[in-house]
């Protein structure tokens, strides 16, 4: 991205159809990183309120969710958010597709909690003062006002992830994409954050290695080697995936080749 690049000529806002039942779709999407194929001709349409993604590291889950927010673009095929191709609406994607990362320490940009929340508001056009006020109100709404002045680094892991999620929610996206948001948390914090996530009105697309967290999702996609291996309700996919893992582990040695 060159610093002389022109501002976007027209606001492509109207190309999003926010009432569409299918909020995200991939049409014959392939993606390479270097010379490794990470997604191989994947097609899928998402309509369900909560969709889980499972698969081994390197199976393509992280790349798939990054396509939804415009962090990556497909080498071939089309990714659509509310009907609009991501390549055409890239600058406006973060407004509709919020993204929560695995490690809250890598997501929070600002030294204090209030500034971190306020940043989302300045991003969508609030001035500094209103953003501060809005952030305060938003924190109070979510029963976090006592954290407002604290340095982000002083929070517990669970509080950090909660603030990262709130920092995204304050931008009021339609879709919340989460890349292993529970991995760094202890058992209790993990359950509480999950409870919080299930209480929001946003559609959720979540990657998880802890299968139990996806048990009451509406749909689960199992990715393997850049393809969708199974796509169904959690009651079918999760046991099949777990059985596959057990079978592989029983068969393999614990050397470098298997890991």
């Amino acid at each position: 991205m060159a610093f002389w690049s022109k501002k976007h000529a027209s606001r492509p806002e109207h190309r999003f159809d926010l009432s569409a039942a299918t909020y995200a779709s991939l049409e014959n999407v392939s993606l390479k990183l270097g010379d490794r194929t990470v997604l191989d001709d994947v097609s899928v349409e998402l309509q369900e309120r909560r969709v889980g993604l499972i698969g081994l590291n390197g199976s393509g889950k992280s790349s798939l969710v990054r396509l939804l927010n415009g962090l990556r673009f497909p080498d071939s095929g089309t990714v659509r958010i509310f009907g609009a191709a991501t390549t055409e609406v890239a600058p406006d994607l973060p407004r509709h597709v919020g993204f929560v990362f695995q490690n809250p320490d890598h997501q929070a940009i600002f030294p204090t909690v209030e500034e971190e929340i306020a940043f989302g508001l300045t991003q969508i056009g609030f001035d500094k003062k209103d953003a501060r006020k809005g952030a305060r109100a938003f924190l109070k709404l979510h029963d976090c006002d006592r954290l407002a002045e604290l340095p982000f680094a002083s929070l517990s892991e669970g509080q950090k992830q909660l603030i990262c999620i709130l920092a995204i929610l304050v931008m009021e996206p339609q879709i919340l994409v989460l890349d292993e948001p529970l991995t760094s948390l202890d058992g209790l914090a993990s359950r509480l954050i999950l409870k919080k996530l299930k209480s929001v009105e946003q559609r959720l697309v979540m990657i998880s290695h802890d299968l139990s967290t996806l048990a009451d999702f509406d749909r689960v996609l199992w990715l393997e080697d850049g393809k969708i291996r199974m796509d169904s309700v959690p009651g079918d996919v999760l046991p099949a995936y777990a059985a596959d893992l057990d079978r592989r582990a029983a068969k393999a040695e614990t050397g470098a080749h298997a890991l």
Binding site: D92, P94, H106, G120, G125, M171
Partner: peptide, 17 residues
């Protein structure tokens, strides 16, 4: 990682242009 997270939130230019 931080740069990616910043871009995911609309980047250093902001969304309001």
């Amino acid at each position: 990682n931080v740069a990616e997270a910043l871009t995911a939130r609309g980047g250093s230019k902001g969304l309001s242009n």
